[in-house]
Design a protein around this nucleic acid. Structure first.
Lengths: 338, 338
DNA sequence: GTTCACAAATGAATCGATTCATTACAAAGG
DNA sequence: CCTTTGTAATGAATCGATTCATTTGTGAAC
């Protein structure tokens, strides 16, 4: 057996015949150690299989090299992509990212914030679900700043990175009109979700500007099943009353609509065009590739992490800023001009 | 401002007029503290906004309440589902799960194992990518056991939780034959992936037993794009030579095939049936719902975490075991009997 | 009133790495 | 030969919570 279970710094020092301070220097300021001792220490580390104890390290230094990230739903590819972007930046700063899932549950959300605080993470990236802004303020007063992700900070108390959903909604509807729609509809809800509200607002404005009315199908959620249900409802309308194009508040809904229309033998886009929102991978992968509004997921995570590091590193001079990306249309077959 | 930035246990003790030991007791063995002092301590904790320092805690106690989980690809819903299952169990044991992404990169894989070791996690759940078994042995010798996930441990050195891919392959092919196929094909690769090899083997055996030959389309990867490419190739074959059913090694490939067949105006399942593997959410959500072989993702994560805790809690009596789940067919429209 | 049993509370020692004031030593300058 | 300057190395003090051997306090039993 080449290595001993619990080798600690002291053991390394003993084996190498140097002081603990020197071993620590080899680890943290190698340039200050003579080559001779350095190599002896490294050999000892290797021989003992010494692994630094991160708990002791961060207890003494008072800081952990980690960020906490709390998202609404890890199963949603949108959030994993954002997280990957953030992780890249964290890695560049030699930090690690602890990813947690609030699963749209206020209790879990608070529990994870507690955990982050106990673990003394350097900062938090969060897509808030419940009423946590006050709590985040408190955390900042204790030295743990946070950045809001996929949510606009309205009061300048936080940095935030979000997407202009109003613009996205307008883009989507304009695209449908350009493709020849004269009876467009919006499918989505609940309107208590800011994103839904904004996307609808943008679409409604665009319709109004074009002098077209926008039919509304309000839904209690944004799930696939709901899309299929609304799709069946729409399919059963008389052709003259039926929308000739639908803007769905997200891709899940849109895919549900698509499946329903296929089952009801409506042709997409000839009988009815569809545009979704988010541009998830599967948008391009359905039998009829789905047009969608695409968000720069990776960039969102990167920018958020960068803002967070700015606040961590320069708490004094740091000024909160709101980054708002403009989402882009990706036109595919589901809206091909007739 | 109701609370002080860095309140520590000593401050709480001072404010409550008790010793540090008593505060610690309130936190860790409340039943040993008189109600009177207990309430004073709790009030002080509240007033100061005291938050336990996890680093100090685990330095002293020698153990962290956390598990590490290292998966091949966090973007793959299969792994997030497995992780959620594991997290449930971890939570029940009052542990937290640190999720990391090796992204099919040996370097990252090793780096994260280092990190886990530095953080002194109690154990590791891993879907190995590179040659890490030796490394995992070393980690166990230093007190950090691990369980293999979605990978069979062949040598009894580890616990493992996996799925019987051979049986799954046989189930898939049998289903196609039952649905009337006489010229089935297998699409997938590379065969260096054990899963692909096993799924093919199961299918080939089932075909042989039925006295039918199984055509093979080998691919260099399992991505959507590849499926579309092979789909185009198959669509251009003469009808008499064309397979009348395809078993794809995973759902991504299957969805690619489906999109290609739709674009080439082949009818599914009338002209060609399709069955995939994994039963990802989108399998049921494509325009033509896809039949697939479903794995108990959640259960895989739960069992793996349970085995890990068994080894953590009873290192002595623990006996390694291999849990192998049998995957199940979910028949949908893409294989409806003609 | 003394002794005993038991519960409650105490606080010094501890975990392991880091830090920094101090010491040791060598080379250069006078 | 002595002083100065600078580089290397040292090791005791420290971070904050936990633990456990010890002390204090209370009531019961005799």
């Amino acid at each position: 057996m080449p290595n001993v279970p619990g080798a600690k710094l002291k053991d390394v020092a003993a084996l190498a015949g140097v002081s603990v301070g020197t071993v620590s220097n080899v680890l943290n300021r190698p340039e200050q150690v003579s080559p001779d001792k350095k190599s002896r220490v490294l050999a000892a580390i290797d021989q003992l299989g010494f692994v630094r104890n991160e708990s002791a390290r961060s207890l003494r230094s008072g800081s952990t090299r980690s960020l906490g990230m709390l998202v609404l739903d890890v199963r949603n590819p949108f959030f994993t992509d954002v997280a990957l972007g953030a992780e890249n930046v964290a890695e560049a700063h030699k930090h690690s990212l602890i990813l947690a899932n609030s699963a749209e549950d206020s209790g879990r959300e608070l529990a994870y914030l507690d955990l982050f605080e106990q673990q003394r993470v350097q900062g938090v990236l969060i897509t808030p679900f419940g009423q946590v802004l006050q709590r985040l303020e408190t955390m900042r007063s204790r030295g743990i700043p946070s950045v809001l992700v996929d949510r606009l900070a309205r009061n300048d108390q936080f940095c935030s990175v979000s997407v202009d959903d109003v613009a996205g909604g307008a883009t989507a509807l304009t695209h449908l009109l350009d493709a020849g729609s004269v009876r467009p509809a919006f499918v989505g809800g609940p309107f208590t979700l800011q994103q839904v509200e904004d996307r609808y607002q943008g679409a409604a404005d665009a319709a109004a500007r074009a002098g077209v009315s926008l039919q509304l199908f309000e839904t209690p959620d944004l799930k696939f099943e709901r899309g299929r249900q609304i799709g069946d409802l729409i399919s059963n309308l008389q052709p003259a009353k039926r929308p000739d194009a639908v803007f769905a508040a997200n891709d899940q809904l849109a895919l549900g609509l698509l499946q329903s229309f296929a089952a009801n033998e409506l042709r997409v886009p000839e009988d009815i065009a569809i545009v979704g929102f988010d541009d998830i991978d599967f948008a391009s992968q359905s039998s009829i590739p789905l047009s969608s509004i695409s968000q720069p997921r990776h960039l969102i995570g990167e920018r958020a992490a960068e803002l967070l590091f700015d606040e961590i590193d320069n708490a004094e001079e740091h000024v909160h800023s709101q980054v708002v990306f403009t989402p882009e249309l990706v036109a595919r077959q589901s809206t091909r001009r007739h």
